[in-house]
């Protein structure tokens, strides 16, 4: 049971990371980063490291996501 949960979470991790790197829409990439940090937070708790889980979810999932979105908001998109 726990083994299959681990496998599912790891597959989701790889999928969100690849989508964050390769997608064209920047906003989708930032949201995928936030989902990545959420899954990593769950894995840190399963590895019995609650300090890391707290730091990851708050610092990456909330703060750098907001910084990225605020930065993207100031840019423009041009198609060529």
């Amino acid at each position: 049971m726990l083994q299959s949960l681990n496998i599912v979470l790891l597959i989701l991790l790889v999928v969100t990371a690849l989508t964050a790197c390769l997608h064209r829409n920047l906003l989708v990439a930032v949201i995928m980063l936030s989902a990545f940090s959420l899954i990593m937070g769950a894995m840190w708790v399963m590895l019995r490291a609650p300090d890391l889980a707290l730091a990851e979810v708050v610092a990456i999932g909330v703060i750098t996501t907001t910084f990225f979105i605020a930065s993207i908001f100031r840019t423009q998109r041009r198609e060529e």
């Binding site: 609650p50 707290l54 730091a55 708050v58 610092a59 909330v62 703060i63």
Partner: peptide, 17 residues
Amino acid sequence: LPGGGFQGGAAIGAGVM
């Protein structure tokens, strides 16, 4: 308890955001 200065400070920043 688990936590510390960095985690709590980041949570304060998140609340203000």
